[in-house]
């Protein structure tokens, strides 16, 4: 009997090994461990054994049964695993095929530059002021210390509609309007972005329509050094932390003193390159202390209040920053141009 059991175990284990799929394995299970299987038969024959032999033989039967059982389970797990792998293998795809495209547009490069500047100054406590593009001569010129007859306001340079109404030539009238609204009480702290128009023929460097951003701060005790500090802060945030700025004396009718502001070249770091034409500096802004006539006309006491103002051209900044060679690109809106400004 013992030999018979050992032989059965041997046989069963061999068949388990030989089973190539789950069905064959199940056949083995039924054949050896089933109710009609040989081991059950052996158990049935145990009645003929002596009481001494019975527990020994019983233990042996269990041992054999467990051995087969565990071999079956092991094999079953293995076969199941194989089955899953086979199924997954059949589900494999080509990951190099293109993904389903998600359509994305993006900001116009000028908006990109303008929003960056806006956000930078918002961070410094400025608000954004906007005003009309079709403007009164008074706000565009007179309130900015450009009285009638001033050579800088020639009919030839501006798009007039009537003698008193024109397309604004700069965003400065927004400053004049905002100051007027403050009725002589500071502080005023604004950034004015917007479209402006000049009577220029469109070519690679001129556009009859372009954009400007100006800033204005009016309060008691505003100093020219505050202008320098503010613009240095701006230059560093906009063009890199190791940037520096310099003031060169200049002239604008609405500021006194007036300066042109250069930023150390962000391309070469100031050593000189073709972007900065070898000077190490790039002219970015015009600025100055608000002319007392401008303050007075807007209702501020120029003995009590001082202020600074600055202005810059997003087209110029975008051209320098992105290496754009022709200002007309901004207004032609070639998709192949626009889509180059997609990155965050």
């Amino acid at each position: 009997m013992k030999e018979r059991l050992q032989q059965l175990q041997q046989e069963a284990l061999e068949k388990i090994i030989a089973a190539s799929d789950l069905k064959a394995l199940n056949d083995v299970r039924v054949a050896y461990l089933g109710k009609k299987g040989p081991i059950t038969e052996v158990l049935r024959g145990m009645g003929k054994l002596s009481p001494e032999e019975r527990p020994i033989m019983g233990a042996l039967v269990n041992e054999v049964r467990e051995a087969i059982q565990s071999a079956l389970e092991e094999k079953q797990a293995k076969l199941e695993q194989e089955e899953v792998e086979k199924k997954l293998a059949s589900e494999a795809i080509d990951v190099t095929l293109p993904g389903r495209p998600v359509k994305l547009g993006n900001h116009h490069p000028l908006t990109r530059v303008i929003e960056e500047i806006e956000d930078l100054f918002i961070g410094m406590g400025y608000t954004i002021a906007e005003g009309p593009e079709v403007e009164k001569d008074y706000y565009n010129f007179e309130a900015l210390n450009l009285p009638k007859g001033h050579p800088a306001r020639d009919m030839q340079d501006s798009f007039y509609i009537t003698e008193e109404i024109l397309l604004r030539t700069h965003t400065s009238p927004v400053q004049a309007r905002t100051m007027e609204k403050h009725q002589g009480r500071g502080p005023v702290k604004i950034i004015c972005p917007g479209k402006v128009y000049r009577r220029d023929n469109d070519d690679a460097t001129h556009s009859h329509q372009f954009t400007q951003i100006e800033g204005l701060v009016v309060d008691e005790n505003i100093r020219m050094s505050d202008l320098k500090g503010t613009l240095r802060e701006f230059a560093r945030k906009m063009f890199g932390e190791d940037r520096d700025i310099r003031f060169r004396p200049s002239f604008f009718p609405f500021t006194e003193p007036s300066v042109e502001v250069d930023v150390s070249c962000f391309n070469c770091g100031g050593h000189g390159c073709n972007v900065c034409k070898g000077t190490g500096w790039i002219e970015i802004l015009g600025a100055g202390m608000v002319h007392p006539n401008v303050l007075e006309m807007a209702g501020f006491d120029s003995k009590k209040y001082t202020g600074f103002a600055f202005g810059m051209g997003p087209e110029r900044i975008a051209m320098l920053k992105y290496g754009i060679d022709d200002i007309r690109h901004f207004y032609q809106n070639d998709i192949r141009f626009l889509q180059q400004f997609h990155r965050v």
Binding site: E118, F121, I122, G123, M124, G125, Y126, T127, I128, P187, K189, V217, D219, N221, I222, R223, M224, S225, D226, K228, G229, T230, R232, E233, R246, F247, R248, P249, E256, P257, S258, V259
Partner: peptide, 26 residues
């Protein structure tokens, strides 16, 4: 302006306005 330009703008310190700081916002 005459004093500033001949004194030299590079000698002008860089400061920020001293005023109550109000947050900017769209």
């Amino acid at each position: 302006e005459e004093v500033a330009r001949l004194y030299g703008y590079d000698r002008l310190p860089a400061t920020l306005p001293i005023a109550e700081s109000k947050p900017g916002k769209l």
